[in-house]
């Protein structure tokens, strides 16, 4: 094992982490502000990827595809909030889970109805194909771009919440929703905006991941589970926590997959080390979550 390989794996972990952040940010925002558990967040990720694939196939322009994904996911999110979720804020979490699970099924079969059962084609844009040399390391340019976009989005989101009027309303909504309603802020509109913002972030994640993964029905659910782990680790409702949790989960998962079989190989025979190592690696983020919850029951930045 060389230093180059380790650095490459750290970059991979960082890239995975930034993608998880885009998913987890929307989830934690919606939970923090509205107290809503949205299982259908993965469907918005899928909407983003399908919109990007369709727009890219029609225009051949990846930037346009990204814009289409953001718009489609935000629109789907706003409609979802206005038509269904609005009725669920006062209900308990079990009702919300049931209703948003139904939304997953509706989105999945609806997508199949429109796009068919076969995965769609979406490729890395020409400008970002191939690899970039960093010292002795050659790293895929597209993955670097995902890191850059993810970090930029994180900064933008921080500025939005801490430096703008909308951000003040969002933070106030988290703290005391009756009070801001009493102050004359249209809470229904605020909720729709927050939900659409979270949805757009999920759509962006889907569109960014589409070119390197499979654009297919049901692609959102595995990511959703990871995003929930991130939200719990980071502390429910905290954007900063989501960022820290996402990077931690991304790096732990990547390094676990890579290092555990190697480390176990020093104490047992190779085939057993591969089997045990890969089994442990798939559990690593859940072990991490359990340890963090023992240490801080409300998550890293939860209150």
């Amino acid at each position: 094992m060389t230093a180059t390989l380790l650095i490459e794996q750290l970059l991979n972990g960082l890239q995975f982490g930034t993608m998880l952040f885009l998913m987890a940010a929307g989830l934690t925002l919606v939970f923090g502000v509205m107290g809503l558990i949205n299982l259908a967040h993965g469907s918005l990720y899928m909407v983003g990827a399908f919109a990007a694939a369709t727009a890219a196939a029609a225009t051949g322009n990846f930037l346009f595809a990204l814009v289409a994904a953001l718009a489609a996911a935000a629109l789907a999110g706003a409609l979802m909030e206005m038509l269904v979720l609005r009725r669920l804020y006062r209900r308990d979490h079990l009702d919300q889970v049931l209703a948003t699970f139904a939304l997953i099924l509706i989105f999945s079969e609806g997508t199949r109805w429109v796009f068919g059962s076969f995965p769609l084609y979406l490729d890395v844009p020409k400008a970002l194909a191939g690899t970039v040399r960093i010292g002795s390391l050659s790293y895929p340019a597209y993955r670097l771009a995902i890191i850059v976009i993810g970090v930029t989005t994180a900064i933008g989101l921080w500025a939005l919440i801490n430096r703008t009027r909308l951000g003040v309303q969002i933070r106030a909504g988290e703290a005391d929703r009756e009070m801001i309603a009493a102050l004359g802020i249209d809470i229904a509109r605020l909720y729709t905006i927050v939900f659409a913002l979270g949805a757009a972030l999920a759509g962006l994640a889907g569109a960014l991941i589409g070119p390197i993964q499979s654009v297919q029905v049901g692609m959102g659910e595995p990511v959703l589970i990871m995003a929930f782990v991130v939200v719990v680790i980071g502390g429910i409702g905290s954007i900063k926590g989501a960022l820290a949790g996402a990077i931690l989960v991304g790096v732990t998962d990547t390094l676990g997959r890579f290092l555990l079989p190697v480390l176990l190989g020093t104490v047992m025979e190779p085939s057993a080390a591969t089997a045990v190592g890969s089994a442990l690696a798939s559990m690593s983020i859940y072990i991490l979550m359990a340890l963090i919850l023992v240490w801080r029951p409300t998550g890293l930045m939860g209150s």
Binding site: F16, Q213, P222
Partner: peptide, 11 residues
């Protein structure tokens, strides 16, 4: 051996 359902293979 990777986890069933894994979709990122950078590592």
């Amino acid at each position: 051996y990777v986890k069933l359902g894994q979709t990122d293979f950078a590592a």
